[in-house]
């Protein structure tokens, strides 16, 4: 068909063939547009972030902006230093990941290798429903249940702190980590496990030395998705992290993340004003940060794939 030569003996008449080809072209172009739409949207976002964010560097030098510790957007003259927000974001994300990854992978290994079929088939959909809980509700849970607990457990002045936010975020990224790494573990070929058992390995040795290493690329993907959720999450962090503007010294200090500062001050920023530009620049840096995480993840996955290529 594509070469224009008749494929069958009873080739369609030329009129019908032309019409068929036109239809095919149309569908092809629709699919092409759908395919590049995501790229167009992404480029649009980058352009807007650059256009609205970069002008702030005429007011505050990039060095001052990134490493300054004073954020007073509505003062006269205003000052924009986002170092405390970057430190808070990194701190909360790291702690959330450190909690969610071991628990999530262990849960996935249990569901995939240890639990009876009935248990894993009931438990997994329930865990996936957990992923659909709106972040505002997680914020309420953090405010009402977790923050008094953290406050009394660590004898703090207030339970609204980075640690509370990190624990809530780890709960929120857990379902993604469990679900995706369980799929990866499930996809490990049976022969691998059978070979391991045949050599006399116990269940634990099989999971630790055979299943997890062969599913590592999938597990790494799961972890990156979890990290992505933790970096980008806004509402829960805004509600429970405390919102102090000072540079956090320990995880139990109240703090403001980059997402929270955008959410809490974009509303009263006049379009095109200095504060508006500064917040877009924060968004730009957040974007670069998540892009870096994704690129690193892609690299890790690539290496894993080559290692296991047969």
């Amino acid at each position: 068909m594509l070469t224009g030569q008749p494929v069958s003996i009873t080739a369609p008449p030329p009129e019908l063939r032309r019409r068929l080809r036109f239809g095919e072209k149309l569908i092809e172009s629709v699919i092409f547009i759908a395919g590049i739409l995501a790229i167009i949207v992404l480029l649009g976002i980058i352009v807007i972030l650059l256009k609205d964010g970069l002008p702030i560097f005429a007011h505050t030098s990039p060095w001052q902006f990134l490493f300054g510790t004073k954020w007073y957007p509505i003062s006269d003259p205003p000052s924009f230093g986002i170092a405390p927000f970057m430190v808070s974001t990194l701190m909360i994300t790291l702690i959330a990941t450190a909690i969610a990854v071991p628990v999530g992978v262990a849960c996935a290994a249990y569901l995939s290798e240890v639990a009876p079929r009935k248990v894993s088939e009931t438990a997994k959909p329930i865990i996936e429903i957990l992923a659909g809980i709106p972040s505002v509700m997680m914020g309420f849970v953090g405010l009402a249940l977790l923050s008094p607990l953290v406050q009394s457990a660590f004898r703090l002045n207030t339970g609204l702190c980075g640690l509370t936010a990190a624990i809530m975020l780890s709960l929120m990224s857990l379902p993604i980590i469990v679900s995706v790494s369980e799929d990866a573990l499930h996809a490990v070929p049976r022969e691998f496990k059978e070979a391991s058992y045949a050599l006399g390995a116990t269940k634990w040795e099989t999971i630790w030395h055979v299943c997890i290493p062969s599913a590592l690329s999938g597990i790494a993907a799961a972890i990156m998705l979890g990290v992505g959720r933790a970096i980008g999450e806004t509402m829960t962090v805004l509600m429970v992290a405390g919102g102090a503007l000072a540079m956090p010294v320990s995880p139990v200090d109240p703090m403001t993340t980059m997402t929270a500062v955008i959410a809490s001050s974009i509303g009263n920023a006049i379009r095109g004003g200095l504060q508006y530009q500064a917040l877009f620049a924060v968004g730009l840096i957040l974007f670069i940060l998540t892009l870096a995480v994704n690129i690193i993840a892609e690299r890790v996955l690539e290496r894993q794939k080559r290692k296991f290529a047969r």
Partner: peptide, 26 residues
């Protein structure tokens, strides 16, 4: 003079009032 760096900035008044109701030193 500006708000100090240790001040907790809360997104709503209700949240602040309920925090004070539950925290003896707020």
């Amino acid at each position: 003079l500006e708000y100090g760096g240790k001040v907790l900035m809360l997104p709503s008044t209700e949240e602040g009032v309920s925090q004070v109701a539950g925290n003896a030193n707020a």
